[in-house]
Design a protein around this nucleic acid. Structure first.
Lengths: 199, 199
DNA sequence: GAAGATACTAGACACTATGTCCAGGTTCTG
DNA sequence: CAGAACCTGGACATAGTGTCTAGTATCTTC
């Protein structure tokens, strides 16, 4: 890796950071290329030597985050007892390290493209794990696993966004993740204490 | 209600329909005011006599849908055994009657504003029901009800979008709703057949 | 069926942001 | 220090926005 490359990488990182900050400040539609360039301390023309337009930068940002997330979760995380707990915890931990990008994506900023990318990727991963588990354990699931995977992911997306946008005194990562795991394990009725039969 | 009002209402409805169709065809960012006007069979200037801009029309569309949904679900739907099943079924039924608008909103089109509006409204409603139930029944929930409400809504949003975008041979409303209810009742582990303890 | 009100219309307008281009400047490497 | 990158400001044509105006169509009411 030569040093020209380094310079390029630094500039791109600056543009990414500037983009995220600007979108959270002004909203995706309200951000001008000039704002991003200025916030990244770079000329407007320079922006275009790196990215075709605002959308391209957005896609790049999402790609980077998804790449990091993928690298962080190994197949081993999906093994064993309570096998969904570790991936969820890892997701929340990653998000808490860079709340801005995650808020950006989960809010559906940029016409929802990033949110759909995240949800789709995460859903595919989950479904594959669920399906393979059912396969190897000769289990015949009582419900459609595609629906289960979607539900599982949607649940996390909604809770994660709420958690990231909650003001200062918010529950800790462990507590929220624990709640999600409990819901997976015992169902909402059990967790809330409402008895579906006698009520 | 005079007849001028009628004309106005008809034009607005036409603009709403045109907007939805155009966004699904070109994506929110790709839609020009001219496209909407043309699709509604109306002059471009007319658009501006009804709505400030594209965003205002978008907000109006969301408002109408949320209004309809609210009207459809009475407090009685939240009563009794399996009290979450009926509202969910009603939501899915409403969505299946006008899949286009719901797809538009759930995809996060328009920088996610509509999706957030829908999720927030639905979450608030759910939380209030949950909280009041816990109150009147003197139940001390095992988990944070705010998280439960978020999770419950996120689950539905993700599954509903998936369902609306699935090609022709897709599961029926009843089946999908039934799955969601089962997940609420018994938890994901039970429904998938994976035993969290012995696995 | 005429008068009046209201919605609609085409076209022109200034304005703003986009994306491309270029010629010259800066910064790092070898 | 020479060369190769990256960066730069400014100029440019283009496209879409939102406003306005003067005039036309449509419907109600008497």
């Amino acid at each position: 890796m030569t040093n020209e490359d380094r310079r390029t990488l630094r500039t791109r990182a600056a543009l990414r950071a500037a983009f995220v900050a600007q979108v959270l400040e002004r909203g995706y539609a309200g951000v001008r290329v000039e704002h991003i360039a200025a916030a990244a301390d770079v000329g407007r023309a320079t922006f275009y030597t790196h990215f075709r337009d605002k959308e391209a930068l957005y896609d790049h940002v999402v790609e980077v985050v998804l790449g990091e997330l993928r690298e962080r979760i190994t197949p081993a995380d999906w093994e064993g007892v309570g096998f969904t707990g570790r991936p969820v915890a890892e997701l929340f931990r990653h998000a808490s390290e860079q709340p801005e990008v995650y808020r950006l994506i989960l809010r559906g900023e940029g016409d929802g493209r990033g949110l759909r990318a995240l949800v789709d990727a995460w859903t595919t991963t989950a479904y594959d794990v669920f399906a393979e588990r059912a396969e190897t354990q000769r289990i015949r699931p009582r419900v459609d696993l595609r629906v289960v995977a979607r539900a599982w992911v949607g649940e996390q997306a909604a809770v994660l966004l709420w958690w990231l946008e909650s003001p200062a005194p918010r529950p800790g990562t462990e507590q929220v993740v624990e709640t999600l795991v409990e819901l997976s394990r015992h169902g909402r009725y059990w967790a809330t204490g409402f008895d579906p039969v006698s009520t």
